[in-house]
Amino acid sequence: MSSLGALIIVLAILMTIIGGETGIRSFFSVLINSLLLVLVAMLISWGLSIPIITAIFVPLKLATIIFLGTHDYTVAKNSFYASLIVLSLVSVLILGIQYLAQAAGLGPEAGEILLGHSQMPGISYGQIAVTVAIFSALGAVAEAAVSMSSGILELKKAKPDITEEQLMKSGAAIGYDVLGTAMNTIIYGMFGSFLSLFLWYYRLHYSFGEVINDKLFVNEALIIMYSLLGVLLTVPLATFLLAKGMSRQSEAKNGNEKTRDQEL
């Protein structure tokens, strides 16, 4: 049996025991999410339009992460819209910055990988770099949106008569915590992902100037910053959407059944 298979089985068991029904759903959200990445790679390799594939798979992946991973529908719906808007904004930013950075493709460091492979594959690695950047930021944005939305909803539940203004203010406080959380996850995730690249730079005596101009380093550093930018944009937007949505909801409720609103 392959080691990866065994680890996945252990994970499935643990998630079922500890997570219960939510755990099982989260497990499938992770599994589907990974399979979607393989599918994206295949579709792109068949020569289909990279921007269109990206535009289709971003909402698809968000839906898998958010709707399968959380069990509160209000939280999920709000997080989904917030992350979709944020990712559209971040994508525009990514397009602009990647255009300027000219850091697509594999670096000269990747020589070994390229051995025996086509060096002229006939698809745009510039576009692929944009897609990779968007997907890398996607997870962090979705996580932040879910934490923000559920945090604010908790607050609203505890204090049903809170005003929209107060809600926005508390949103900033919750946002600080969410940001702290996301930042560590992103940065250590990246350290763990690129340790060997950094060792490579050091061992081959790259100077500081060379490192900060190197294609791969620039690409990685930019991906960290796109994720942070995405999380930063999510904080006010998720708060705003939820505050708007809830005030509309409570107005509607006030019209129909006032008593139930007070009970909450």
């Binding site: 997570g19 939510t22 759903r25 989260s26 959200s29 990779v132 962090a140 996580e143 995730g189």
Partner: peptide
């Protein structure tokens, strides 16, 4: 239970993308 799904997905996307 609420946190684990999205958190795992963040890392999956970083490591696999």
């Amino acid at each position: 239970q609420e946190i684990m799904g999205p958190l795992i997905n963040v890392l999956v996307l970083i490591f696999i993308s």
